[in-house]
């Protein structure tokens, strides 16, 4: 089974090498590719100096475009599974082999690493948690499924969804919307408890103004995605 770790990376010069090394150590039978989203800092040089496998986007596309590039790469290279691991070190690659086993065993199309099933590890701020609970409820309304951590970037998909996401992936705040798309297409989405950490270094790209825009935009995106015609996969 060919498995790929997609590591979207924007200005993560402090964390990226550590993130990649951890993946190589804890998930040795996974291939990896860093998607450098036109970082403005020293990320590219660091990637070159450390001989890290990466795709260099000539223009910044944002998380959606970067991860989608990873899915395109996964599809074109015939991978059976692809998992997203953030470049900032929040995701612990120790969970990857078990996630693959569980996805295969349950015959699922997507498995999401959720912080909120066992509530261990970094739980994010209270405000964020309320926001996430709200999205859990909204997604339940739209799809009938209960996804406890719809914004989690730690998600693994199979070939079917690799192909689908390679062609259809939202531009910003892609996780909730893409989960709804998968569910609406009849895919089986499961969750597994994981432990996340706070970032190793660098800055998060979310703030208060963005948060309001984010809540409105993602809510509408989920509702509209729920109403689109889905051919099923």
């Amino acid at each position: 089974m060919k498995k790929l770790v997609i590591i979207p990376c924007y200005n993560e010069q402090e964390a990226i090498v550590q993130t990649v090394r951890e993946i190589q150590n804890k998930a040795p039978d996974f291939d990896y590719v860093v998607i450098n989203d036109c970082s403005a800092d020293n990320t590219k040089q660091i990637l070159l100096d450390n001989h890290i496998r990466f795709i260099d986007l000539p223009i910044n596309l944002g998380i959606g475009g970067a991860v989608q590039t990873g899915y395109l790469y996964a599809r074109d290279h015939g991978y059976d599974a692809a998992v997203q691991v953030d470049g900032d070190g929040q995701h612990d690659p120790a969970f990857l082999p078990a996630m693959f086993e569980e996805m295969t065993a349950k015959n699922a199309d997507m498995i999401i690493g959720s912080r909120f099933i066992k509530k261990e590890g970094f739980q994010s701020t209270f405000a964020r948690q309320m926001g996430i609970r709200y999205f859990t409820g909204l997604i339940h309304q739209v799809t009938g499924a209960t996804i406890t951590d719809p914004t989690s970037g730690l998600r693994m998909v199979n070939r079917k969804l690799i192909s689908y996401f390679a062609e259809n992936y939202p531009k910003d705040y892609p996780e909730p919307e893409s989960t709804v798309a998968a569910l609406k297409n009849g895919c089986k989405v499961v969750e597994t408890p994981v432990i996340m950490r706070s970032r190793h270094g660098g800055k998060s790209s979310i703030n208060l103004n963005r948060s309001v825009y984010y809540m409105i935009k993602v809510s509408m995106a989920i509702i509209v995605e729920g109403q689109r015609k889905h051919a099923g996969l």
Partner: peptide, 19 residues
């Protein structure tokens, strides 16, 4: 407008202000 967004002919991002 919602129909256009569903068909992916208009991006939700740019449509928000019209809503």
């Amino acid at each position: 407008l919602t129909g256009l967004i569903k068909q992916k002919k208009v991006e939700l991002k740019y449509a928000l202000v019209w809503y």
